[in-house]
Amino acid sequence: MENKEFENIIVTEGLCKSFSVGGVQQHVLNNLDLQIADGDFTVIMGNSGSGKSTLLYALSGMDKPTLGNIVFAGEKISEYSNDRLAKFRRNNCGFIFQEVFLNDNMSVMDNVLASGYLSGLARKDVYKKACEYFDLVGIPCEMYKKFPSQMSGGELQRVGLVRAIINNPKVIFADEPTGALNSANSIAVLDLMNKFHREGKNIVMVTHDIKSAVRGNRVLYLKDGVILNEITLGEYDKDNEKQRLETLKVFLDEMGW
């Protein structure tokens, strides 16, 4: 894989996204300019309907903007066809969803390999890597053959994490990754995300949860499709979590959270 270094891994210019709801045009993203620096753990917050998920999907190339440009790792993906975008996502994006969205008819290992085999690496290496990641997130090998319906929510989200990183993506996109988890599982998942970030992964996370948001080093606040403001929290450390939380609360209060 090509390993170019970029100052900004993602850059948007005049990003607009509109939907037609019941015949009425709704402008969810309005002329949004954004730069996400390489190495950031970016958190996107905002009220419901502010356009957080829409922005996340647009940035990840899962959705095409109505207007504007998105440059991802030096490639202007806003001009790509759907299939080219799909191919682009294989090696550049990893996804973590609130509901995990594993295929119920496949074992957890197959769910991960179905993604990993798209990387183009040798299958043996992919399998080896999957085992390593499973080990890293605390999924023992006797669970590889299990189906999603046979696992707990926390375990599933960890499988989701492995699926997200198996292709060594440039950016991991997480949409409310802890939304369906209890406190202990949330912490475990967030710890893993911080670990991946420390190891060099870019992360863009949408969340409603302030405890999750403090894990990022940059928090954007979205309102009516524009970035109202942002705050930089610096690198996360368990020791400074309380202080970060306070800072973030003040910031969010100011934003009308």
């Binding site: 008819n105 496949m106 074992s107 290992m109 197959d110 390999l113 179905a114 085999y117 798209l118 299958r123 399998y127 053959k145 189906f147 319906s149 046979q150």
Partner: peptide, 29 residues
């Protein structure tokens, strides 16, 4: 309880990925 069995593990398949996923769909439905 789930009694599903993984009859076509991806890790053991020598077929192309899309074909393997097609085969899996046969056994799962």
């Amino acid at each position: 309880h789930s009694f599903k069995r993984n009859l076509v593990p991806l890790a053991k398949s020598k077929l192309p990925v899309n074909s393997t996923l097609g085969v899996k769909s046969v056994t799962s439905e």
